[in-house]
């Protein structure tokens, strides 16, 4: 919709900021370098609103209303503040809840400390057998990126309420995992463990699912999961696919460069 792209001005902490109509306030704040803590936001995914940390207060007709900035859309003249006493009060409790939920996450500890929260009054949950190392905060980014961006749907939420965890179906090895590692890339607490061994990638957090890797025919290095490569190659023109299929990015770059130089210099490739 073109109407949604209309430029508008929003006010964050008294500062006037340009935004696209319909853009999320958190996205505007990130661009404007206004600090709002957040854990479940990813620009390429739909608003989710689960971590509740990005609270702001909207000033509407003199009344303040608290809401999450990742689900708040920019409209002309929208006036928000990010650090009222109420927000600080509730956010601090939320940080305490996070410290209890993910006691082993250094990232959470550091983030909470930035906002002055270093201790929690709540019972800390530690499960020595947790495949996510007691660092998962169930923000759902891994689940969503796996499903909505990669189209694999290899992992999901299991159980509900306080028993919710993220894992593969039935906590078993899954064939649906492409081994792309997008889950680990988006994880805000670095909870997902992936180990690259000789010839295969082990999704240690995902029930030890093993994904074979493609070996570079030039240098012999293992460089990409086979399933991901196959999915990607299906989208490329055959001419390009040949090189991509069997060469690691470095060797590919080198070989293509050499080939181009040869073509330009009539095959001599000699500058002497």
């Amino acid at each position: 919709m073109d109407a949604a792209k209309k430029p508008v001005t929003v006010i964050i902490n008294g500062r006037r900021c340009r935004a696209d109509a319909g853009e999320r306030i958190l996205s505007v704040a990130i661009r404007e370098k206004i600090a709002i803590p957040h854990l479940c936001y990813e620009a390429s995914l739909d608003p989710y609103g689960a971590c509740r940390l990005c609270l702001v207060e909207v000033i509407k007709r003199g009344k303040n209303e608290m809401t999450t900035s990742c689900t708040l859309w920019a409209t002309e003249g929208l006036d928000v503040v990010t650090d009222t006493p109420d927000i600080v009060k509730h956010r601090n409790i939320l940080f305490e809840l996070y410290l209890a939920q993910a006691p082993k996450s250094e990232i959470i500890k550091k983030m909470a400390a930035q906002y002055g929260v270093t201790k929690t009054r709540f019972f800390k949950k530690v499960n020595p057998a947790d495949p996510l190392g007691n660092a998962c905060i169930l923000c759902g980014l891994c689940v969503r990126v796996c499903d909505e961006i990669m189209g694999a749907g290899a992992i999901t939420f299991v159980n509900r309420g306080p028993y919710t965890v993220v894992n593969t179906p039935f906590s078993e090895v899954t064939r649906d995992c492409l081994g792309c590692g997008a889950c680990a890339k988006v994880c805000p607490t670095g909870a997902i463990r992936i180990d690259d061994l000789e010839g295969e990638r082990v999704m240690t957090s995902w029930s030890g699912t093993r994904v074979p890797l493609v070996q570079c025919r030039a240098c012999g290095r293992f460089f990409a999961p086979q399933a991901l490569a196959a999915k990607t190659l299906a989208r490329l023109t055959p001419a390009l696919a040949g090189d991509v299929a069997a060469l690691c990015p470095e060797c590919r770059g080198q070989q293509i460069a050499e080939r181009e130089i040869r073509a330009k210099t009539g095959g001599a490739g000699n500058h002497a």
């Binding site: 609103g49 689960a50 971590c51 509740r52 409790i93 939320l94 809840l97 996070y98 209890a100 939920q101 709540f122 019972f123 905060i137 169930l138 759902g140 939420f157 159980n159 509900r160 309420g161 306080p162 028993y163 919710t164």
Partner: peptide, 21 residues
């Protein structure tokens, strides 16, 4: 309510659990 929480957002999932404790 703890048992029926869907588990999506932190205050409900974690907060109710600690309320119960």
């Amino acid at each position: 309510a703890t048992g029926e929480s869907c588990g999506k957002c932190v205050p409900c999932r974690e907060g109710l659990k600690h309320t119960l404790l």
